[in-house]
Design a protein around this nucleic acid. Structure first.
Lengths: 337, 337
DNA sequence: ACTGGCACCCGCACACCGAGAGTGCCAGCG
DNA sequence: CGCTGGCACTCTCGGTGTGCGGGTGCCAGT
C-alpha cells in the first residue's frame, strides 16, 4: 500500500463528495475513477485515512466524507489549479472594464465573483494608504460645521462632516484651504497626515481650535478608518447551496456578513497570495461548515482584499481560480486608473 | 350574529396566528380572548369569514389562518396603532443622532430598523432632486479624464468619472469651473441642470465637446440616476423568521434584495404615508408569502423611502409603528443637516 | 341568535419492517 | 507482502399502518 495511492483516494473522495454532496463509498469510488485496484483495497486505504483524520463517516456503515483536515490536504497538495477558460477571462475583463468609478468597480467585482463561484462574494473597498492626495475641499454647511472632502489619486472621494465647536473667523476657511492644497497635493496619505498636522502652528492661536478640528478630520480620513471598513457583499442568494439546515449553516453566515468587523477578520490580513481557510481555521466556531477563499488585490496605489465564503464542500480549484482571476483584473484596473 | 363580532374574531385570529405561527381553532380562540360566546358560535362566524375569503384552512379539519385579504382587512380596519415606548423612541433618536454624515445616517437607520422589527430592513438613499448645489469640483485624473464631484446641501457627495474624448485646451477646466460655480451654487438640482446646459454655448466651438461631456455628467448626477438607485439593506439574518422552507420563502427574498431595481419597485413610489403591501400586492409572484411595510421619509431637501420586508404573518402594528418612527427621525435629521 | 353535543375527518407522530448500501474482516492468491 | 473476493453485519432510509387529538359542521334545544 503506497502512500501515493492513498492520496489519490483522498483526492477522489473530495472530488466525488463535492460534486454529489453525498457520502462516498468504496464501490462508487472504483467505478468513477480508474484506480486499478478493487474496492476491498480501497476500503483498507480508507480505514487508514480515517485513522489519520482525513475522512470520517457520518454514521457507521455509510460512505466517507472529508474532514476539515482532509480538505486542507486536498487544497495544499492535491488540487491541480483549474485555469479559467479564455472565454471566462474575456467576460470578466469586459464586464469589469465597463466600470465608471471605484465604487462601480467594487460593485461589479462582487457581482462577477458571486456569479462565477456560485457563492457569497465579498470585496473590500480599496485601502487609501498607498494612494496620494489629489484634492481637498472644505465646504461650509452652516456657521459651525464644515464638510471636508478628500479626493485621492485612486479616484476615491472621502467625505466627513466636522463640528468646529466655534465659529471660524472671517476668511479663515479660505485661508486654510489655500495652505492645505500646496502642502498635501501629490503626497501619500500617510505623509499628508504629518504635513497637515504641521500646519496647525502656522495659524493664530485663536484660530487653532477650528483648524485643529478640521485637521483631525483630515488625518482620520487619511488613516482610512472608515474606508477600510467598507465592504460590498453579493450573491447571498447562493446561500441555498450551503445545505438544508438554516440555523446551523445559513444563519451564521448571514450574521457574519452583517458584522463588518467579523467579515474583515474573515477575509484576513491579505498576506498577498491566495488564502484558503477551512472550517475552524476561520476562527469562528459558528462557521464550522464554512470555508473562505480570499486574495489580496491591487498593487501600488490601492490594496485590499476580496474573496468568497462558501461551504467547506466547495469546488476549491474552481473557486480559487475565480478569486485569483478577479483579484488580478481588479488590481490592474484600479492601478492604472 | 353581528358584523361587529365577526371582525373581532378576524382580529383575534390574525393576532393569535402571528404570535403562535400555528393555525388557530375555535376553542383556542374563546380561551385566549374574552369574546363572551361559545366556540360553536365562533365556528359559525369562522365559516362566514371563510366564505368571504378572509381566512382559510390549510387542510380540512385544521385551524384557520388568515388569507392576504384577511391581513389587508386587519391592517385597514382592525389594527390599533401600537405606539413605541418612550424608551424606544429615545434609543432610536440617540443612535441615529450619532451619525457623522448622510451615509452614516442611512447605515444606522437600516440597523435600527432591522433590530426593531426583527425583519429585513431597506433604506433608500435620500433623493437629490430637492436639494441644492453647494459645490462643484472638477479634478483632472489624467490627460483625457476628469472626476466630477458635486456636493449638495443635504451633505451628499456625488462623484463621476468622465471620459472627455479629447484633451482639453490649456486653462479650459479652470475656466469652466469658474463659470460653473456662480451659475449653480444655491440652485435646486433640477434648475442647475438647465443652467449648466446653457453654459455650453458660451464656450468656443472647439472646446464644446469637452464641455459637453462634463455637462452631461453633471446633469446625469443632478437627475440622480445613480443616487436614487442606491440602497442599504440589513437584517438579512432575520430571514430565519420567514419560515422553514428555504426555496419558497427565503430564496425569493434574497434574490429580490440583490436586484436593486426590484427592491426599489417593492418599496414603491413613496406616496407619503405608511404603505403596506401584502402578498400579491407586492407585484412579485415569487413573494407571495411576503409583505412590505414602507414609508417615505424626509421633507424639503431630501426625500426617499424606507421600509421592511417580512412574512405576511408579521406583527403589523409593531412594524408599522417602527417604520413610521424611524422615517420620522431620519427625515428630521436629514432636513436640518 | 346562541349553545351543547355529537359524529366525523384528517394530519401527525410513532412504530415497524424490508431493502440497499457500505463496512470490516478473513482466508486465499500471485 | 500486498491485493482480492466473499461474507456476515450494521445502520439508514423509505414506505406502510395505526391510534390520537384537534378541529370542524351540523342539529336539536333553549
Amino acid at each position: 500500500m503506497t502512500d501515493e495511492r492513498r492520496l489519490d483516494v483522498l483526492r477522489a473522495i473530495v472530488e466525488d463528495y463535492v460534486s454529489t454532496q453525498e457520502p462516498v463509498g468504496s464501490r462508487a469510488l472504483v467505478e468513477r475513477h480508474h484506480l486499478g485496484v478493487s474496492s476491498a483495497t480501497i476500503r483498507n486505504d480508507m480505514a487508514v485515512l480515517e485513522d489519520e483524520g482525513y475522512i470520517t463517516q457520518p454514521h457507521t456503515s455509510a460512505g466517507r466524507i472529508p474532514t476539515d483536515k482532509g480538505y486542507r490536504m486536498f487544497v495544499d497538495r492535491l488540487a491541480t489549479v483549474k485555469a479559467m477558460s479564455p472565454a471566462e477571462r474575456r467576460a470578466i475583463e469586459r464586464f469589469l472594464s465597463e466600470s465608471v468609478d471605484v465604487d462601480d468597480v467594487v460593485q461589479r467585482s462582487v457581482k462577477v465573483l458571486a456569479q462565477l463561484t456560485q457563492q457569497v462574494a465579498v470585496v473590500q473597498y480599496p485601502s487609501l494608504t498607498r494612494s496620494t492626495v489629489r484634492h481637498i475641499e472644505l465646504v461650509g454647511l452652516d456657521a459651525t460645521r464644515v464638510l471636508v472632502v478628500v479626493i485621492t489619486s485612486s479616484g476615491r472621494v472621502e467625505q466627513r462632516t466636522v463640528e468646529l465647536g466655534a465659529e471660524p473667523t472671517e476668511g479663515l476657511l479660505a485661508d486654510l484651504r489655500s495652505r492645505l492644497l500646496p502642502a498635501t497635493i501629490g503626497e501619500r496619505l500617510a505623509d499628508a497626515s504629518v504635513k497637515v498636522a504641521d500646519l496647525i502652528e502656522t495659524f493664530r492661536p485663536e484660530d487653532r481650535p477650528v483648524v485643529t478640528a478640521i485637521v483631525t478630520a483630515l488625518t482620520q480620513t487619511f488613516s482610512n478608518e472608515r474606508s477600510d471598513a467598507r465592504l460590498a457583499v453579493g450573491g447571498t442568494a447562493n446561500l441555498a447551496r450551503f445545505g438544508a439546515d438554516f440555523d446551523t449553516s445559513i444563519r451564521p453566515v448571514l450574521e457574519a456578513i452583517e458584522e463588518q468587523v467579523v467579515l474583515l477578520k474573515l477575509l484576513g490580513e491579505a498576506t498577498g497570495g491566495l488564502t484558503v481557510r477551512i472550517g475552524g481555521e476561520t476562527g469562528l466556531e459558528t462557521l464550522s461548515g464554512t470555508a473562505v477563499v480570499s486574495s489580496a488585490y491591487g498593487g501600488e496605489t490601492s490594496r485590499a482584499t476580496l474573496g468568497t465564503v462558501g461551504p467547506t464542500r466547495m469546488d476549491y480549484p474552481g473557486t480559487m481560480a475565480a478569486v485569483a482571476a478577479v483579484a488580478r483584473y481588479v488590481g490592474r484596473l484600479l492601478d492604472d486608473a
